[in-house]
Amino acid sequence: MKFITTRTLMAAAALAATGLSAKAQSSVQLFTLVDANVSHYSAGSKSGAGNVTSLNDGTTNGLNGSRWGIRTTEDLGGGLKAGVLLEGGFGVDTGAPGQGGRTFGRQGYISLSSSNLGELRMGRQYIFEDSVMGMTNPFGNALTLNPGTGVTNAGKALPLWLNAPRADNVVQVQSLVYSGFQAGLQVGAGEGTADRFHGVKLGYGQGAFNTALSYEWNRARSTGDSVNKSLTVAANYNFGSFKVLGGIQRNRDLVTTSGNGAFTGSNLTVTGDVTFAMDRTTGSTVGVEVPMGQWLFGANYTTVKYANAAGTSQTLGKAAAGARYGLSKNTFLYAAASVATGDLKDYISQKSVTQVGLRAAF
């Protein structure tokens, strides 16, 4: 009887320990990030705009857009983990919700990952192009150096490089890293109100060298044609004392009606010495990043050619430089400046931009 009691107590202790272990392997994290900057915009003489100084949330020329969120993970055993990420954006300059007022407009998905296979995600999430473009430029799609920051061309929004950067209703599958290679696939259902979105990504990284490409497109719900076809290729190499970065982007068959995916803008009209409706762009960027203690310096040059099938085209470029100073691992001061080049430089409201900002995360 004593033996049975001892075994029972030992079993109970083991179960209790297992329960405690399971709880220890599950987590819920509440996080927030706030980023604000003061920017001065000098307008081109033919843009129809005036010079402006404004306080911006980090979504405009900052290190990061302001946000708050909840992240959960649960270890299911056998190499399986479940996760949830709910992330809402807001403008710290006004306090208004971001992403059109969505509760979790930045991201909202559930995931299941395997240490042997890879990861499945379902929900609103970043498209692959955003991460690939982030490999092409200093600071990773930030400050005035961001190739994805659009411009105002004669009063209308115009993209530089395409950068949606999220899509709705996305099912994503991403592999593990095998010998430096990793692949991913995304499909976003149109659900009758938007075009179906597709994206593929292939990346490779070994040591100091990293490269990746993404290809994304919409299947038009009205015609079944493939539109908004976007190819982005990136590469960078870290020499230790500095890193060189670069990439190209090629976009074809651009339309404004897809509503979900690589291009979600509402304007394809280019106004310059000639005015025309463009349906394709070709861009490139090259830059350098230099760490010095708590400082990180960067500079790059980005260019794009807007064109249509008839051969009409106009160019726009941006030369930029910036610096980031780490007050801690989560809090940064930053500053940057850019100046436009090319055919359209006098037709945009952001011919030159200077900025200073502060970002903190908890």
Results as ranks from 00 to 15, higher is better:
304 V>F: 01
243 K>L: 10
132 V>C: 07
362 F>A: 04
250 R>H: 08
158 L>R: 01
162 L>F: 11
344 L>W: 11
290 V>G: 05
171 V>K: 08
214 S>W: 07
106 R>D: 05
226 S>D: 15
176 L>R: 14
52 V>K: 11
344 L>T: 10
292 M>N: 12
294 Q>S: 15
204 Y>M: 05
47 S>M: 10
145 L>F: 08
341 T>C: 11
176 L>W: 05
274 V>T: 15
185 L>S: 06
35 D>P: 03
226 S>T: 14
11 A>I: 11
64 N>M: 07
12 A>L: 12
50 G>W: 03
129 E>N: 14
74 E>P: 08
324 R>Q: 15
338 S>V: 01
226 S>P: 01
134 G>C: 13
183 A>W: 03
77 G>L: 09
219 R>W: 05
323 A>P: 07
114 S>R: 07
46 K>T: 12
187 V>N: 15
211 T>P: 00
182 Q>R: 15
339 V>M: 13
279 D>C: 00
115 S>R: 05
283 G>T: 03
281 T>K: 06
22 A>L: 13
110 I>M: 15
133 M>N: 13
227 V>F: 03
333 L>N: 08
322 G>H: 03
232 T>G: 02
239 F>R: 09
130 D>K: 00
347 Y>W: 12
282 T>V: 10
83 G>D: 03
138 P>D: 15
312 T>D: 15
124 R>T: 01
241 S>W: 10
267 N>M: 06
192 G>H: 07
284 S>I: 12
354 T>I: 13
190 G>L: 00
361 A>Y: 00
89 G>T: 00
203 G>W: 00
46 K>P: 12
87 E>L: 05
269 T>R: 08
263 F>V: 03
281 T>N: 08
10 M>V: 07
307 A>K: 15
61 N>M: 02
24 A>R: 09
344 L>A: 08
259 G>E: 09
199 G>K: 11
317 G>V: 03
359 R>Q: 14
205 G>I: 06
275 T>M: 10
133 M>L: 13
162 L>W: 01
124 R>E: 00
352 S>H: 05
27 S>H: 02
90 F>M: 01
119 E>R: 08
164 A>R: 05
359 R>F: 00
76 L>N: 13
348 I>D: 04
181 F>G: 04
60 T>C: 02
182 Q>T: 12
184 G>R: 02
110 I>R: 04
106 R>C: 07
131 S>G: 06
215 Y>G: 02
24 A>F: 01
241 S>E: 12
321 A>F: 06
257 T>C: 01
91 G>A: 08
361 A>F: 00
246 G>P: 11
108 G>Q: 14
